[in-house]
Structures are given as C-alpha cells and as structure tokens.
C-alpha cells in the first residue's frame, strides 16, 4: 500500500510530469497548466486514492487524462507514433539510402584537440544550442534518459510510447546532436 504525500509532489514529480506534458502538447504554457491542474485534481481526489497504484503512476494517470481532455477541446492530436512515421522519410533521405549511409555527413571525424576543450563554457553553450534544435516531440524523451536517469521501461510508460520507438528517438536525437556538434564545434577548432 502506498501513501500519498502531496507536500512532496512538486519536488519529486513536477519536472517529470512537465516533460511528459510538454512532449504531448508541444507548448510550455499548456504543459505548465496541465501539471498545475493535475496536482489540484489529485488533491481533490485524494480520498479516492487507495494506494493501489504508486503515487507516481497515479499522478501520471491523472495527467494523461488531462492531456486527453485538452485534445478533446483542441482537436487532432499528433501521437509520437504518427510523428515518427511522418518524419521518417525526411530523416532517412538526407542520411540513409535503404538503410545504408549516404552523404558526406558521416565522413567527418572529430579532432582530438577539440576534444580537450570540451569543458569550456563555449562548448556547453554550443551543446545547449544543439539540444534546442531537437524537435519537441523527441527532446523531452531524450532528456529524461539523461537528466532524470530513468530506466527505459519507465520512460516508455511515462510518455506512452513503445520500446521500439524509444530507441528510434534516442538514435535520431544522437544523429541530430552529432551533426550539429560537427558543424558548430568540431570542424572549426
């Protein structure tokens, strides 16, 4: 049996709930509102919480219902699956031909001198700019792996994506970051 401790919610879950809401709605403002609503609804429903699901899963269920409500009012929702299918051709065309590597982008190595400077503030800025180029449907998923250090299963459950799609996302984001760093850091130092 789990016990709810609302005074710990913001500290423990707010950022993760926000990442999920952001990925699903593509909007910071909407995501903030949905997280806020989730907490408020959860408190109102506190009597109904019997501690069968963990507090965290319970909050995510509430959030996901809020997301569904939001799209009921707003109209069509682009799921992660549709997003990945819709963008696959564009991603493949520039980088792969029938799965095989094409184009000069793969030839660029990273020089080791550039390597030595990676602690620079300048580098942090470049990396952060590169992360900003990652589409909002993929960035929160990718970030959750690194900055919340969650196990893969948990990330899939949170974002409601399949295991296969998780690794499609992780790979695509890596390629985006690799290309961006090649252009903006490793080629001109």
């Amino acid at each position: 049996m789990h016990k709810a401790r609302p005074e710990q919610w913001v500290k423990n879950y707010a950022d993760m709930l926000f990442a999920v809401a952001l990925q699903k709605t593509n909007s910071r403002e909407v995501a903030e509102d949905l997280v806020q609503d989730t907490f408020l609804s959860a408190i109102k429903a506190l009597e109904n919480y019997r501690g069968e699901a963990s507090e965290k899963n319970w909050l995510f269920t509430i959030l996901n219902n809020k997301v569904i409500d939001y799209y009921r009012k707003k109209g069509r929702r682009q799921t992660t699956e549709t997003y990945l299918a819709d963008t696959e051709a564009a991603f493949d065309d520039s980088l792969y031909n029938n799965g095989h590597i094409t184009g000069s982008t793969w030839r660029a190595g990273w020089s080791s001198e550039a390597d030595a400077n990676i602690n620079d503030k300048d580098f942090q800025q470049v990396l952060s700019n590169c992360l900003d180029k990652v589409p909002v449907k993929m960035k929160p998923v990718f970030i959750s792996k690194y900055f919340h250090d969650l196990p893969p299963d948990e990330i899939c459950a949170m974002f409601e994506i399949s295991n296969a799609n998780l690794w499609v996302i992780m790979h695509r984001v890596k390629v985006i970051l690799k290309n961006c760093l090649t252009h903006n850091w490793f080629s001109n130092t």
């Binding site: 997280v35 970030i143 900055f147």
Partner: peptide
Amino acid sequence: INTLLKRMSIKDEQL
C-alpha cells in the same frame, strides 16, 4: 556525447 551530456545541466525541459 553521453559523457558530455552527463556534465551538463538542463533547464529547458524543467519548470
């Protein structure tokens, strides 16, 4: 990239 990301702090995806 994994090593580099671990050294970085990210604010964007957070409240």
